[in-house]
Design a binder for these strands. Sequence first.
DNA 1: CGTTGCCTTGATTCTCTTCAACAGGGGTGG
DNA 2: CCACCCCTGTTGAAGAGAATCAAGGCAACG
Lengths: 251, 251
Amino acid sequence: MSSESKSLLELLEASPISARFSDADRKALHSLPVSLRRYPPHTVVYNQGDPVRSVYIINSGWGCVYRDLPSGDRQIIDFPLRGDSVGLRMPAAFNYNTYASITEMSVFEISQYALNAIVLQSPYLSSGIMGLMARQRAFLIEHLTNLGRRNALVRTAHLLLEMGARTKSNGMGTEKGYSCPLTQYELADALGLTAIHVNRMLRELREQNLVAFRYGEVEFINRPALVRLANFDENYLAIGMFMGFATSQLD
Amino acid sequence: MSSESKSLLELLEASPISARFSDADRKALHSLPVSLRRYPPHTVVYNQGDPVRSVYIINSGWGCVYRDLPSGDRQIIDFPLRGDSVGLRMPAAFNYNTYASITEMSVFEISQYALNAIVLQSPYLSSGIMGLMARQRAFLIEHLTNLGRRNALVRTAHLLLEMGARTKSNGMGTEKGYSCPLTQYELADALGLTAIHVNRMLRELREQNLVAFRYGEVEFINRPALVRLANFDENYLAIGMFMGFATSQLD
DNA sequence: CGTTGCCTTGATTCTCTTCAACAGGGGTGG
DNA sequence: CCACCCCTGTTGAAGAGAATCAAGGCAACG
């Protein structure tokens, strides 16, 4: 895979988060107990029903957050990538979804307890955390819209474009394409479709010379036409960076 | 309608938020410039594309947050009720969805600018804000799962149950039912269905003696059976109250 | 008293699922 | 080394579920 950071600070200052810290914030961050964890492919990080203990900032690799349903289906909520956060929610609660790796994955893990402390210390950091939450929220809303009001072809196109924009913004991909380790089953679980139908939609997109997803590579063939088909708007992804509540006082 | 608060403080201390403030927090809240606004039915509060200016805490009435699509369809993201928040995201950005009233609606409006200030002043309040964001996030995830992996009947049942749990938790409804001013068109836009099909699903639910939604009233006839049909789990709604990051230090 | 908004129902169409079968690659064990 | 299996991808045919098209109902409102 592409870039990977050695420290949380380095990751937060890199794209897409691009935080700019004061010395005080840096100091606070240094005192924060963080562990860099590695997970092999297809390993559960936390499970639906587990108590909430930690927050994760993804450093490298692909994973997915999903909800298992009693019917045996699952709904994939998101594929968090480098620079995304997982698990920012209330403590003293239980997880109502599962987070698992897809490829080998490295993440920075911060305990809820330590996070509480830093929220008390640095308003800039807490507003940064809100920024991360807002970013995840924007992904969710787009995903929701995708499932509710777009047909299978457009929906598939849209997801490929979204992951393209996200991989580009964190250095994992380019305008032309990106490496994507997802199976058609995983795509289907995210898109609310069957893998069989996803397969047909991918073929359709390929045959229309819009985008090819084969052998773990997404290749944009005719990006403008694909963007038009999917009515894709990159702007929603730009929001929610680290320039949080606190800094906007400068306006 | 049922309860309504005269001040933001009163609203925050009431169910479902149930905040407990220190004197310092109360003071900070008192200095916060808040305006109580009323909107007539079917009025836009902010529009897709407008710059972000304010955050809203709903006091009474029904509204909806939605995204308009170029196709002319729209996807309703959420129906925020008393005690819910709208617009908590990054400043210096644009809204990528619209917030409009459905019934007459009263909301507390706080400028982003003022909110920044309070985040700097009170860590407890900022963690409370994170709590509100986490709560909205839980709604989104459930809604997403609903659209992705449940059929029309179950999906409809689930939404009626969710709004039932939410109205109950903020005093607008009871175990037996609640007043619901939504049209079948609005339900359809939330559920990713056509109004015609929603109509059929409501009839089905009524004929199976599970729940009746008629004349603006949702009446749970056989709640246990309905909960079973929809695989409804109220717990996800319980998370994300005001007992935020900061307080959990007491653990 | 006609219009408008919301609800209701039937008939038809089409999107997506389900069921079924097969092909290629990678690993494993006999 | 090969037989076997599992996982992923691929394709076809049948069937279900929801959309679309069409029409009529009732109540509120000017």
